[in-house]
Design a protein around this nucleic acid. Sequence first.
DNA 1: CTGATCTACAACCATACGGTTGTATATACG
DNA 2: CGTATATACAACCGTATGGTTGTAGATCAG
Lengths: 114, 114
Amino acid sequence: MVVDQAEVDLLFHALADATRRDIVRRTMDGSFSVSTLARDYPMSFAAVQKHVAVLERAGLVTKERRGREHLVAGNPAALRAAHDVLDRLELVWRERIARMDDLLAADTHEGNRP
Amino acid sequence: MVVDQAEVDLLFHALADATRRDIVRRTMDGSFSVSTLARDYPMSFAAVQKHVAVLERAGLVTKERRGREHLVAGNPAALRAAHDVLDRLELVWRERIARMDDLLAADTHEGNRP
DNA sequence: CTGATCTACAACCATACGGTTGTATATACG
DNA sequence: CGTATATACAACCGTATGGTTGTAGATCAG
């Protein structure tokens, strides 16, 4: 499951803004119209609209039209994808620690054998 | 353990670039001088220097001077912090699913009691 | 139909970003 | 010493970002 670097760029870029993270948090708990979301932020409707567009481009939310309003819903899979990228970065570190542990264990072993 | 939103912004912004993510990955496995890192990317030394500065500002790497070269080392704690932010976003979703499960279970329960 | 609401989109603006080149400083080597 | 290496930093440039306002198209209520 190799992820395209450009998509990861979009993912993390989308998460690098407090307003957008808040929108993600809220939409993970259900669907909200863009104007409902916009009401809670100290900026224009158009600005929130742009934030939603950034989140949509990153795959973090999806929009579904219902009547005249567009419901924004969070996409847990995208969050999981970001998670996985971080896991792979951490993995390198974990493996390094494991190797160090192995070396220490080997040393101890040799130390026990005179 | 409340994290400052501005710091989280820096964290995710730093991770929103493939070159920077690669530097993080490499430095999680040990220390590298800036020029050693720079050799592997198709850009100037100064550009890589800037990337390292962004990572440092986000706390993802630390620099330690050794002689004339500055060794860049990854900081697993920052990676963990990013992880935790994602966990909290996911948590909302998990709780929602749990609530839905509870409702379903309650329905089933009532259905079993005539 | 009229009016109010929700959304989309364009134009604009200030600032930040990612890259470049050039210059300066500290350290190692011979 | 002089020279090469490693880094830092400033200035510059094109483009993207995050915000604004304004205009226009759908849709619902009366």
